[in-house]
Structure formats: structure tokens, C-alpha cells
């Protein structure tokens, strides 16, 4: 897994609550059997009109947000389907971190597994960053996982919480299957205790 320590980048504001994974990556793109190449389908039905041309009004299509690597959005982001294609698409599109007041559980888990950091900040701080990202052209922020902080050049220093294990996995880019396999003896002992000798 890709490590995440600190990232500074352009912030794109997606000012909507309850963005579900069907919007992040519509079902017609879930039939691919690879992990890569999902970026062009990110927010497909919002980015593209029915005739498949880009909708210039959608935030990610606006010139000023091209190259954005931090997505800022409203509460309950990533609700609905468990499809990991959603973080794959966000990652492939170029996002490294997502900031919101809350995330759906499965989506947040899936992000950690892909080195994509989900940052939970209080609504007031999200609103502040939202305003700046809409008003200040080229607005950038820094997401610092070591310090557990989001900072900008306008005096913002916002602390966030993240469980120690997820933080460590992200900082070190750990393969957590490998970590679990280090406990092979305990797993085998559990199975023997519960199911008898095999």
C-alpha cells in the first residue's frame, strides 16, 4: 500500500451531503476486473452530460480546480454500496485526501486500504475551508498525518483524530494482510480450540 505522511495540494469543494458511492463510480464501470483505470469514470454522471460531453458547470470540470488533490465535501460521504471501486476511482483521478464532517464506515475503511486519507473535521471548519476553496483561486491546503493537522496559508490549523492503527498503516504503507499473517499461530490455535483438530 502507498504511504501517506503529508500532502499539500489544491482543494476542490464538492458542496453536497450524503454523496453515495453510486455517484462516485456508477455501476456500469464495476465490471472491470482490474484495480486501475477507474479515474476517468469518477463522478461520471455528474461530470458528463447524457451525450457524454463534459459538463463545464460541475466543480471538478472547472479550470480552476484542475489538478486538485484534496477533495472537500459534506457529511456522510461515501454512503451506500461497499464498492472499493470508489476509492480506486478517487485515487486514480489524483486525490490523496478527502476532508468531510463524516464518512460512511465501509468507504472510510476502503480508503485506508488504498493509502487515501479521510480527514474528519467539525462542520464549522469544513465550512471555513469550503468558503476559502470557493473564494480563493488556487487555494491549497496541507494535510499532515504525522501531526494530525490540516493547515492553510490563511491561519487555519485544524486538528483531526484518526485511530493509531490506521495512522500507522498509512504512514508506513503497511500490508495489513502481512500483519495478520504474523498471527498465524494464534489463528490456528483459535481454529483448533473452536473447531477441533483438523
Amino acid at each position: 500500500m502507498k504511504a501517506f505522511r503529508m500532502h499539500t495540494g489544491l482543494v476542490a469543494p464538492l458542496d453536497r451531503a450524503n454523496v453515495d458511492t453510486d455517484q462516485i463510480i456508477p455501476k456500469e464501470f464495476l465490471k472491470r476486473i482490474e484495480r486501475t483505470g477507474f479515474g476517468e469514470f469518477l463522478f461520471y454522471d455528474w461530470r458528463r452530460r447524457p451525450d457524454r460531453t463534459l459538463d463545464p458547470d460541475f466543480v471538478l470540470n472547472q479550470p480552476r480546480y484542475q489538478g486538485a488533490s484534496i477533495l472537500l465535501t459534506d457529511r456522510n460521504f461515501g454512503c451506500g454500496s461497499s464498492r472499493e471501486h470508489a476509492p480506486w476511482a478517487l485515487d486514480d483521478f489524483g486525490f490523496r485526501a478527502i476532508i468531510a464532517p463524516s464518512f460512511a464506515d465501509i468507504f472510510a475503511n476502503n480508503c485506508v486500504k488504498n493509502g487515501l486519507l479521510t480527514v474528519v473535521l467539525p462542520e464549522a471548519q469544513v465550512a471555513t475551508i469550503m468558503k476559502r476553496s470557493q473564494e480563493v483561486e488556487g487555494y491549497r491546503a496541507t494535510v499532515d498525518l504525522e501531526q494530525r493537522q490540516v493547515r492553510d496559508d490563511f491561519g487555519l490549523t485544524a486538528s483531526f483524530e484518526i485511530d493509531d492503527f490506521s495512522r500507522r498503516c498509512l504512514l508506513e504503507g503497511l500490508d495489513d494482510i502481512g500483519l495478520t499473517l504474523q498471527h498465524e499461530a494464534e489463528i490456528a490455535a483459535y481454529e483448533a480450540r473452536r473447531f477441533g483438530a483438523r
Binding site: S82, E84, N109, N110, K113, D176, I177
Partner: peptide, 8 residues
């Protein structure tokens, strides 16, 4: 769960 966890 997601696909990484399926693998896990």
C-alpha cells in the same frame, strides 16, 4: 466489506 478486506 471492500475488496481489500475480501482479499484479507
Amino acid at each position: 466489506i471492500g475488496t481489500s478486506e475480501v482479499e484479507h
